[in-house]
Design a protein around this nucleic acid. Structure first.
Lengths: 89, 89
DNA sequence: TAGATAGTTAGATAATTTTCTAAATATCGA
DNA sequence: TCGATATTTAGAAAATTATCTAACTATCTA
């Protein structure tokens, strides 16, 4: 999707920390929230922005909603960054 | 330097556009400002944030100040993004 | 079906960010 | 040294963002 939403999402340290947690394993919204000194609604908001940016995928399993990383947009970001290395067009 | 400042800097479309201009060639602040529908002070502010993030370097040449891309931080960002690909730690 | 657990949505507030105008600084050239 | 050009700094207004509390929705289990 858009690089704009992705960079916006990554500009916040909490959201980058969330991604780093999810790098280790998929987690529920509650498990993620436990790791931060912040209320659940705040974390929910961050998760929503990550989702809108297509950086994570959510999947409900019963009462729980599991979040996992979606790497396709990360690839797009790397591609964009790469164009700056070594005079590439 | 810090990944935080870099992602913050890249979260704004004007600043990304500035980097894309500088990808083609070094430019003065005035030349850069001409490309945007925005006042010079606004562009100057964006250039300052890019500079603080170490994404660009500025060098005065007489009355002009030339801006150019500094790729070292871009490399750091790619490294960070890369850690999410293929279950890497 | 009622209570408990998981999570989100709504709405408000405080902090941050973007952009502008006006004014200041720096350098050049006559 | 003066006027013109290039750019930044200062300060203010408007828009966006992060965070909270309160309330709502969804699912499970007894």
């Amino acid at each position: 999707m858009s690089i704009q939403l992705a960079f916006k999402a990554l500009s916040d340290p909490t959201r980058r920390d969330i991604l780093e947690l999810l790098r280790e394993r998929d987690m529920t919204a509650g498990e993620i929230a436990e790791q931060f000194n912040m209320t659940k609604p705040s974390i929910s908001h961050h998760l929503n922005l990550l989702k809108q940016a297509d950086l994570v995928i959510d999947e409900r399993q019963g009462q729980f909603i599991y979040y996992s990383i979606n790497t396709t947009v990360l690839q797009d970001l790397m591609s964009w960054l790469w164009t700056f290395k070594k005079g590439e067009k």
